[in-house]
C-alpha cells in the first residue's frame, strides 16, 4: 500500500523508489578498470627499475608522472569522460583521475582566459586534495617526531 505523500515523508519515499544503477555491475566495472590502471602502473615501475636502472623510489615517481600524462592526454582527447561513464570509481580513484580532475576544468574555462580561467579553475576539484593532503602530511611529520 503506497503511503500518502507529504513533505515529511517525501524524501524518504523518493530515496526508496527512484531507480538506482545496478551496484554489483558498478562494482565489477570499477574493480576491473581500477585494477587495470594499477597493473599498468606496476608495469611502468618494472620498466623503470629493470630497463632504466632506477631506484624503487625513482621508478615509482616515473610511473606516477607517466600515468598523469596519460590521464591528461585522454582527457584532452575527450576520451576520459567516456571511460568514466563506464568505470565510475575505477577512473576517479587512480592518479589518472586526479589528472583528469585538473585537465577538465582547465580546458573548460579556457574561454575565460588563461589567468583567471585556466589558471584559477584548474584546481577547482583537485584543490581540496592538495589542501587536506598537505595539512595531514605536516601532522604526519609531527607525529613521527613525537612517537
Amino acid at each position: 500500500m503506497d503511503p500518502t505523500l507529504r513533505p515529511e515523508n517525501y524524501d524518504a519515499y523518493i530515496q526508496k523508489n527512484m531507480p538506482k544503477s545496478n551496484l554489483i555491475w558498478d562494482l565489477a566495472r570499477a574493480f576491473f578498470v581500477g585494477g587495470l590502471i594499477c597493473t599498468l602502473g606496476q608495469g611502468l615501475n618494472a620498466l623503470g627499475m629493470e630497463v632504466f636502472k632506477l631506484s624503487e623510489d625513482q621508478a615509482g615517481m616515473l610511473s606516477i608522472v607517466v600515468l598523469i600524462f596519460l590521464g591528461a592526454l585522454l582527457t584532452g582527447l575527450g576520451v576520459y569522460d567516456v571511460l568514466g561513464k563506464f568505470a565510475g570509481a575505477g577512473s576517479i580513484v587512480p592518479i589518472t583521475g586526479f589528472a583528469n580532475s585538473i585537465v577538465a576544468p582547465a580546458m573548460e574555462f579556457k574561454r575565460e582566459g588563461y589567468v583567471l580561467g585556466v589558471g584559477a579553475k584548474m584546481f577547482a576539484i583537485a584543490g581540496p586534495v592538495l589542501v587536506y593532503g598537505t595539512i595531514l602530511s605536516v601532522a604526519a611529520g609531527i607525529a613521527a617526531l613525537l612517537f
Binding site: D81, I92, G97, P105, M107, E108
Partner: peptide, 17 residues
C-alpha cells in the same frame, strides 16, 4: 553543465534520475 555541474570532460558518470 559548466555553470551548474561539472566540466564536460570530467570522468564521472551520471545517475539514472
Amino acid at each position: 553543465e559548466r555553470q551548474y555541474r561539472m566540466p564536460l570532460e570530467l570522468g564521472t558518470g551520471r545517475t539514472p534520475t
